[in-house]
């Protein structure tokens, strides 16, 4: 079960999770970026790997917890802020990006991460992605893509493959899935990367780059839902199909990045990055009453 919730105010999961970590983990320093609350995800959920990778990245970057804000939407991924030592806003379905953007706009010194699942970010909230990208606001958006609605217990999502059987597609999914990476590239994001929940070390590197990137960073993490998806994204199937990005890939070449996004393979790492002005840079010139176009 994904989110078995207790009606009891003294829910032990919310309080004493820290006891469960090994000494090695505690010593590593990543616990500085974990709250005392223990995640409520199903055992084996890919999100644990992502959490580990992200905590590591925050640690490596020495991010100031006081200035760390995590914004999430609704869904299994939506619970993420509760497990981070920092400030969090668990908002409403599909709206992590506008809220995160609002926070960053008024507090540019903050490290703002927006977290959401594939239903949250590509379904209900799909309309916000192109505009956050357009603004190139300096936040990092991590899309947890498990191609399923987990919290509502197993319905088709915008990335569920054509023909897959779910509770709302009992005859097979009649719709073609979206390709989030291709969308991010096509919308013109200044940073597009992907990774797999099964490779937390690789994720750490991607996350570090994404957080450090000045501008909107779009990171798609493919992650297994061990409870509701036994056919599509599984550790067994995916561990072997990931590829390294070709050595000669030029990160600034959008056409090449789009070609990689469409060749049927999964590439681990940064597909595209450029260094245009971020939203606040442009605003700075507006304040100086100078032309914002160079």
């Amino acid at each position: 079960m994904t989110n078995q919730r207790s009606d009891d105010n003294n829910n032990p999961l919310l309080n004493s999770g820290i006891e469960y970590f090994s000494d090695e983990v505690k010593r590593s320093g990543i616990m500085n970026y974990r709250s005392t609350a223990l995640p409520t995800w199903c055992p084996g959920c890919g999100y644990y790997g992502i959490t580990h990778g992200l905590a590591n990245a925050l640690k490596n970057l020495h991010v100031n917890n006081n200035n760390l804000v995590i914004v999430s939407g609704i869904g299994c991924a939506g619970r993420y802020p509760f497990f981070v030592k920092g400030y969090g806003l668990h908002g409403i379905h599909g709206r992590a990006l506008p809220i995160a953007s609002g926070i960053k706009m008024v507090r540019p010194e903050f490290t703002v991460l927006a977290i959401g699942g594939d239903g949250d970010g590509l379904g209900i909230g799909g309309g916000h992605l192109p505009h956050a990208i357009r603004r190139n606001i300096d936040i990092t958006y991590i899309l947890f893509d498990n191609a399923i609605y987990g919290l509502t217990k197993g319905q088709a999502s915008p990335t569920t493959p054509f023909g897959q059987y779910t509770k709302t597609t009992p005859y097979g999914n009649p719709e073609k899935p979206l390709n989030p990476i291709l969308i991010g590239l096509a919308y013109g994001a200044s940073f597009v990367a992907q990774g797999f929940a099964g490779f937390p070390q690789d994720l750490t590197i991607v996350f570090q780059e994404a957080i450090q990137h000045k501008g909107f960073s779009f990171v798609v993490v493919t992650t297994p839902c061990v409870t509701f998806d036994h056919a599509n994204i599984t550790y067994q199937r995916f561990r072997n199909i990931w590829k390294k990005i070709p050595e000669d890939h030029d990160k600034q070449n959008l056409a090449n990045a789009m070609a990689l996004a469409q060749d049927g393979n999964y590439y681990n790492g940064i597909l595209f990055q450029d260094h245009r002005n971020a939203w606040h840079d442009v605003q700075q010139s507006i304040r100086k009453n100078t032309s914002i176009t160079k």
Partner: peptide, 30 residues
């Protein structure tokens, strides 16, 4: 902008309200 604030024209009213709530959460008048 001349008084140090920001104006953003959002993609829809949901996003506008989201920005306002986000900024409010962050302690700024919005």
């Amino acid at each position: 902008p001349l008084k140090g604030g920001f104006v953003v024209q959002t993609e829809d009213e949901i996003s506008a309200a989201g920005h306002v709530v986000g900024a409010g959460f962050a302690g700024a008048r919005s």
